[in-house]
Design a protein around this nucleic acid. Structure first.
Length: 205
DNA sequence: AAAACGGGGGC
DNA sequence: GCCCCAGTTTT
C-alpha cells in the first residue's frame, strides 16, 4: 500500500479531523500544554471549562492560580500546568504583544513547550505545512506498521517526513492520536476492526 | 540517562 | 486495586 492510500483510509475514518477547537492559537497552545501525559477525552472538557472562565492571556494573568488549578483539576500534573499557563500568558503579554508565536524557535522558549507541543500549535492553529507533531501514538503506530524503525520521537519525525508527502504532515498527529486511542491502542489493540489490518505486520504487539 | 510530576479511566 | 497515559523539565 502506498502512503496516499494509507492516509486516504485514515481521513475516511476521521473526516471531521480534530474535535478540539485548535484553530484559535491561544486555545491550541494551552490545551496542548494541558494534554501532556493526559488523555484527550479528559483534556478537552477541562480545557473547555477553563476557557469558559478565562480565555485570553490577560485573563489568565489576572486570575488566581488556585482558580486555574481548580478548573483543570481533572488533568494530570494540574498544579504544574496551572503555573505554566500563567507563566506562558505573562510571557506572551510582555514579550510577544499578547500573541502566540508562529515559529518553532520562539515557541520552544515558553515553559512546558517542547518539540511535540510546538509542532501541534504550528500544524493545528497556524496550518504550517512543515510541522509534523510526533507523540507516543504517532511513534508507536509508525513502528508497529513497520514503516519506520526508530528509538525516539525525533527520529520518527525525520523518518516520517522522508516517507510521507508534505501535504499530509500537519494532519498526521490528529489522525494517529484518534486512531491510537480507538483502534491501535498501546495495550490490546483492536486489530479485528482495524482498517489497516491487511497491511500491518503486527510486529511489536 | 533517569527521576519527577499526578489524577482519571480501563481492566 | 493496579497500571498506563497527547511530554517536558530537572537532577
Amino acid at each position: 500500500m502506498d502512503t496516499d492510500e494509507l492516509m486516504r483510509r485514515l481521513f475516511e475514518l476521521y473526516p471531521d479531523g480534530c474535535t478540539v477547537d485548535v484553530r484559535e492559537p491561544f486555545f491550541a497552545l494551552i490545551s496542548t500544554v494541558m494534554s501532556h501525559r493526559t488523555r484527550d477525552d479528559v483534556t478537552y472538557p477541562a480545557a473547555k471549562k477553563l476557557f469558559e472562565r478565562f480565555s485570553t492571556p490577560e485573563e489568565m494573568v489576572e486570575a488566581n492560580v488556585e482558580d486555574i488549578e481548580e478548573l483543570i483539576r481533572d488533568v494530570g500534573f494540574y498544579r504544574v500546568k496551572a503555573g505554566r499557563i500563567k507563566e506562558i500568558s505573562r510571557i506572551l503579554l510582555e514579550d510577544y504583544n499578547g500573541k502566540v508565536p508562529d515559529d518553532m524557535e520562539t515557541l520552544l522558549k515558553l515553559p512546558g513547550v517542547g518539540r511535540k507541543t510546538a509542532n501541534c500549535v504550528l500544524a493545528h492553529a497556524f496550518l504550517k505545512e512543515d510541522a509534523l507533531a510526533v507523540d507516543t501514538h504517532v511513534h508507536r503506530i509508525s513502528n508497529r506498521l513497520g514503516r519506520v524503525v526508530t528509538k525516539n520521537p525525533e527520529e520518527t519525525e525525520m523518518e516520517l517526513k522522508k516517507l510521507l508527502p508534505q501535504k499530509y504532515w500537519r494532519h498526521v498527529n490528529i489522525l494517529l492520536v484518534k486512531f491510537g486511542q480507538n483502534v491501535c491502542r498501546p495495550i490490546s489493540p483492536r486489530c479485528g476492526i482495524c482498517i489497516l489490518n491487511d497491511i500491518c505486520p503486527k510486529i511489536l504487539l
